[in-house]
Computed example of a mutant assay.
Amino acid sequence: MRWAFITDIHANRQAFEAVLADARAQGATHFALLGDFVGYGGDPAWVADQVMALAADGAIVVQGNHDEAVAHGSSPTMHPDARVVIDWTRAQLNEDQLRFLSRLPLQAHGEPGNCLFVHANAFDPKSWEYVQGRAEAVQSLHASTARIQVCGHMHEPMLYHLSGTGKAGDFRPLSGVPMPLPGHRQWLIIPGACGQPRDGNPAACYALLDPGKSDLDDARVTFQRVAYDVEAACTALRATDMPPAIVERLARRLTQGE
């Protein structure tokens, strides 16, 4: 059994297609999708349909802050650019898609083994606070007894751990290099963004988990980077009727990985 963890797709069809193809080629048979399926990108309806299909096929799916905002509509307190993108995205989705996004849980427990899946953090999922470093990672790990947490929201891949004595550490993973997850520690996996990476590398991110044979005691995680057709994703953005200035800012983020 091999799991693929995918998060922050952000309506980027080209990145999502590439990641799904790569995950299946790598032998992934199970999927956990960690929120922010819409927002920023040019293909929210297509991405929503794919996520719904994966959920119907047994994938674990949790809600992200962009999913919540699009499902319920923008507010006057939002940044003007964000409000435009949310309103445009909402207008592209049908009632079934909006209902699906609105009803997603904030977190889910389950296979593989003792895992917790949540978009932002485990200490206050509804706050959408970021795990920006070791302090927030420890706070999230303390909030659950799950041996492995998997979070999105941060658009850069990262791996944190916490020992039984309270000693914490972190790793900035290398793509394609399996990392063991010894059972005497808790682990927090942040796969990085599929649809809008922000670490200077435009290649899409996701992670693979091999649970091992003894309730995750010999589990391994492999962080993956997948090149995709960034220009096609930018073309999809430019084909929308969002204001050109906003579109170009979003396209630059894709091309620069920022």
Rank of each mutant, 00 (worst) to 15 (best):
W3A: 09
I9V: 13
A15K: 08
E17H: 10
E17N: 10
A21Y: 00
Q26F: 13
G27E: 12
A28R: 00
T29N: 12
A32S: 11
Y40K: 11
G41V: 04
D43Q: 15
D43H: 11
W46H: 05
V47M: 04
A48L: 03
A55Y: 08
A56C: 07
A56D: 14
V62Y: 01
N65L: 09
H66D: 07
A69R: 13
A69P: 00
H72M: 01
H72K: 10
G73I: 01
T77I: 04
P80E: 07
A82M: 14
R83C: 04
R83N: 05
T89S: 12
R90Y: 02
L93C: 00
E95C: 09
D96K: 09
L98N: 02
R99K: 13
G113Y: 11
C115S: 11
H119C: 03
S127C: 02
S127N: 11
E129F: 13
Y130C: 00
R134N: 04
Q139R: 15
L141C: 06
H142R: 14
S144N: 00
V150K: 12
C151Y: 12
H155K: 12
H155S: 05
H155V: 04
E156C: 09
Y160H: 15
L162W: 14
L162I: 02
G169Q: 03
F171I: 13
F171A: 10
R172G: 09
P173H: 09
G176Q: 14
P182Y: 12
Q186L: 04
W187K: 11
W187V: 04
I190L: 15
G195I: 08
G200K: 02
P202M: 02
A204F: 06
A204N: 10
L209P: 10
V221T: 05
C234H: 05
A236W: 07
A236D: 13
L237Y: 05
P244C: 01
E248Q: 11
T255W: 02
